[in-house]
């Protein structure tokens, strides 16, 4: 005679309390893992979100590089820089295409970062009494600080040099050189820029190589080089951008 598996086995209710453990351990939830979540959407997954951050991060990085190269024309004189600015603004499709792309990138980058950040906080509800780093960089651990600071800076920066509210009555539409000199002559603004650029540098030290890792590109020989490149690129950006307010403050640019 065959046995019915469901009736020939029983847990002795007298001793077995319905503890947390049995709910947690594989007896109960192993089936759960297989059935409720055998697939996951791209955006739902942490890996997918990181890929979005990588792609948008790459776009923002390329923009920042181009932006700096544009800005450095300040050393070529007022005419060159203002002409360049005029050129950019005159091609409306390019201008708005770029603005929309950047805005979307920023929104996606921040949305993904925020959602991941919240998830990560929930993943460790109780902090260690003592925790020490065994092998990560300061920059990589502070992305959630450098990121929001950069966001605040970007808003200020747009109000400062694009729309002009932060610059006040001295703002002149289209006269980039003039706006720069006036803006950076105000020392607190320059200091804010310098701090923001240092944050940007830190953010990129990690971000520029991390985006490759998130996209699944890693190689024992090239990844270490890439990490060096990330630091070099970040340093170049910081130095290039900081040089402008410093030059204004020192009176090199007038």
């Amino acid at each position: 005679m065959k046995l019915d598996p469901s009736s020939n086995s029983r847990e002795n209710g007298k001793f077995e309390s319905p503890g947390v453990y049995c709910n947690l351990m594989s007896t109960a939830s192993s089936a759960l893992a297989g059935k409720t979540s055998s697939r996951i959407g791209f955006w739902e997954s942490t890996v997918g979100k990181k890929a979005v951050m990588a792609v948008t991060g790459a776009i923002l990085f390329l923009f920042v590089v181009a932006h700096m190269i544009g800005n450095l024309q300040v050393y070529l004189g007022q005419e060159k820089l203002d002409n360049y600015a005029h050129l950019l603004k005159s091609i409306k499709s390019l201008l708005w295409g770029e603005r929309v792309t950047l805005l979307l990138s920023v929104i996606l980058h921040i949305t993904a970062a925020t959602q991941l950040g919240l998830r990560n906080r929930r993943a460790r509800p109780r902090a260690y009494v003592k925790w020490a780093s065994a092998g990560s960089t300061y920059a990589s651990r502070t992305m959630y600080w450098s990121g929001p600071i950069l966001l605040a800076f970007i808003i200020y920066h747009i109000l400062h040099f694009t729309t002009g509210q932060a610059l006040g009555p001295q703002f002149r539409e289209g006269e980039v050189y003039h706006n720069m000199i006036v803006g950076f002559s105000f020392v607190p603004a320059s200091i804010a820029y310098i701090i923001a650029m240092l944050m940007l540098g830190m953010h990129l030290c990690h971000g520029v190589w991390s985006m490759f890792q998130s996209m699944g590109v890693s190689h024992p020989r090239y990844t270490p080089l890439l990490r060096k490149f990330a630091v070099a690129a970040a340093a170049a950006l910081v130095i290039g951008n900081i040089s402008i307010p410093v030059s204004v403050m020192l009176g090199i640019l007038k």
């Binding site: 046995l3 020939n8 086995s9 029983r10 847990e11 002795n12 001793f15 077995e16 309390s17 503890g19 453990y21 049995c22 351990m25």
Partner: peptide, 14 residues
């Protein structure tokens, strides 16, 4: 014996 809860249980089989 469930080593976490101390629960004693019987499992029957063929």
């Amino acid at each position: 014996r469930n080593l976490v809860t101390g629960g004693i249980a019987t499992h029957l089989a063929d």
